[in-house]
Design a protein around this nucleic acid. Sequence first.
RNA 1: GCCCCUGUGGCGGAACUGGUAGACGCGCCAGACUCAAAAUCUGGUUCUCGCAAGGGAGUGUCGGUUCGAGUCCGACCGGGGGCACCA
Length: 853
Amino acid sequence: MSRYNPKVTEAKWQRQWDEAALFRAEQTPDKPKYYVLEMFPYPSGRIHMGHVRNYTIGDVLSRFYMSRGYNVLHPMGWDAFGMPAENAAMEKGTHPADWTYDNIAAMRTQLKQVGLAIDWSREIATCDPSYYGHEQALFLDFMEAGLVYRRESWVNWDPVDQTVLANEQVIDGCGWRSGAPVERRKLSQWFLKITEFADELLDDLKALERWPEKVRTMQENWIGRSEGLQFSFEIEGLEDRLEVYTTRPDTIFGASFCAVAVDHPLALKLAETNADLMAFIKECQRSGTSQEALEAAEKKGFNTGLVARHPFDEGSDLPIYVANFVLMDYGTGAIFGCPAHDQRDLDFARKYGLAVRPVVVPHDQSPDAFSVGAEAYTGPGRLAHSHFLDGMSIEDAQAHVIGLAEKGGWGRGQVTFRLRDWGISRQRYWGTPIPIIHCEHCGIVPVPRDQLPLVLPEDISFDKPGNPIAHHPDWKHTTCPRCQKPALRETDTLDTFVDSSWYFIRFTAPQSDRPIDRAAADYWLPVDQYTGGVEHAILHLLYARFFTRALKRCGHLDLDEPFAGLFTQGMVNHMTYRDEAGQWVFPSLVRENDAGALIRSDSGLKITAGRVEKMSKSKRNVVDPDDIIDQYGADTARWFVLSDSPPERDLIWTETGIEGAWRFTQRLWRLVSAAQGALVAPGTPVRADLSGDSLDLRRSVHKAIEGVTGDITGLHLNRAVARLYQLANAIAAADVPNIDPACYREALEMLVRLVSPMMPHLAEELWQSLGHKTMLTGAPWPEADPALLVEDSVTIGVQVGGKLRDTIDCAKDASGPDVEALALASDKVRRAIGDQTIRKIVVVPNRIVNIVI
RNA sequence: GCCCCUGUGGCGGAACUGGUAGACGCGCCAGACUCAAAAUCUGGUUCUCGCAAGGGAGUGUCGGUUCGAGUCCGACCGGGGGCACCA
């Protein structure tokens, strides 16, 4: 018997699918549509196992829905703008465009070898003017719709390299290249008004039933709607009042200080005449702009000497601090601190010796005895030590204080969101140019639409630090479209999240001369199943949801939610290895010597195995998909990434695992090949009166159809794989001479058909060798015969006092008394009961009997 | 620091809405085939006491709800993801 040769077979079927144009998405009214999408890759140069896993999951769905009679759209493209291309340009001197397009070409070849059912005619790259030109048009549409504005905001500034740094380029507060301490700087930047949709983005999460609960929760928290009180304190000796926002107006009597952000106008004004305060502010600005850096920093404050008057409690005035943990972006940039009921305030109060007065007391404690130690109390309770609020619930007290503030005219109830507007300006070359002209006379003027795409300059130099476009000798010099006088182009480019906020829409009509073809978008959208990593759970997905709504407002779409179903897949991990010299070692170099110790195959150095971690180039714990496909074929690689781990969890890549998958592909091949001679002709009907082993086999087959279908629909792909192993075991264990020949053929055919979405090449090959002349891809999905799925007897457990003592076989749906009698007839059960009295017998039909003693 | 997720044999995992914990795969052990090896096939494999029959323990830890908890509730510990300029 010949061995299965994936190299020849996979190439053969890929060619045939291609020639038959099977994966070309058709927009026809006779069939329902199904849009399958995986997050498009950044063209880093080579695909990694994470890609293989991601695209295989999507591919299984594509092929499955194709055979269930849908018009399937399964496209591929490239998230092709971004920093790595510029870094490569700086390090290797290659042009970002050349580097990117070379990478795309290499990765396309690799992806094609995986045998994905992709409509390659729709391929797009975001760095292509035919894509980003339309994006520029959309930017202008947003501008006309009032969704774009410009204001100052903070960036990480590297004082040595004279350049803006991304958060990931700030390491321990210093620039990654220069090592110089990073400063915060203000720059005029472009923003999109995502906050205008905050309520909608929050409310509509509820309707996203096919999104993971955790992603919805994360977005909910990110948007962060809160109801509170905005009010102002009188400041002793000053005309100005201090405007603060609080979500806990009930704790007003527990206030012991006020604090403003380091970039709050009051702080800046005081710093003009206070050198110490100025130094403190400068000190605080010597850290990155990331939330993490700000919040993880030790809480520090500067006492301004100013005092805020408590609105109710004349005796207790509150010192005003400038504090590094107050955020200018949230609320009013100023707070009152109630240390007893907020952890950050408590940490601050302990450091500066401020009073900690509990004003909310848990229901089971007395107001006089309750005190707060190292942890703030944020739970439920009753108000205490709060004059007229005493005894109220938190909710009542909040409503009461807000009411008083509104009546007294010194404050009002206010809804605040944590969500901030989306800053889309980047001071970089490799991105979409923002189509704006700055004119001294006319101000901000959009680039006329007939001049789009506004393309990036090609002759660019990375010799100097900073933004290469701004350094370009003539690109930015232009004339104002309004007054025709000399003017300057905007040199900022768009955040790459803008590119990925509408690519799934462009896929519906990638060649259209308008950004969006309404008919195509109406037909294909929303995406039915979107798959990608959880790391995109908030930003990318929220931006895309916002973009869809903004496009609707501009008349491009009639759609609110872009992704009807979302699936977040886990990472691919691998064991790490280090040699005696402390170097990380590629798994392909690890060998076991005769003594069973791990050594390097090149140098012979001893190796120690470390933790299992996410595959990463830096730790070298990577496996190259090319090597795997070369050695085992794409089907084996696909089978392995689908097996074992549930797709939403991390997968551990192991050499033994891929070998197990390889054995299974060979086993399937042998199973079908061995049957060849003995098979009846294709299409021979299976008799209805099977019995014995044939009937048992047929039941297993139909249960597998039912199970696999359900597993794929529910995205439990690892369970589908396990079921197929079971089915193969059942077929292999069958005593062929005793099995009805038509039944045996059916079993083999169903195995092949059920395996086909996962191992499409092998399935085609086996289908052909079973005597079929037409391709399996796209052929209708099998249906289970319901009559073969019903069981007439069940085995259930019998517990005595909650402990399993025996199992009994009984008729399905047998009545309580019958099952009870059967259970009590068991020797093991009687022994377990002994001479104890039976207090009660719980019978759950078809499940369990529990005899309570 | 804040938000979210996760924790089951030697390993990856299975267990529908609370009802026989460990399906399936990997590894390991024994056997068959072979001059031998590889491949393949058959059987076994949670731990523990026991020759066996049989008993006991067991789903990160501690506690709770229940006739019954891997599953629900509370606290804690370990691992991971996100935190707005990585994509």
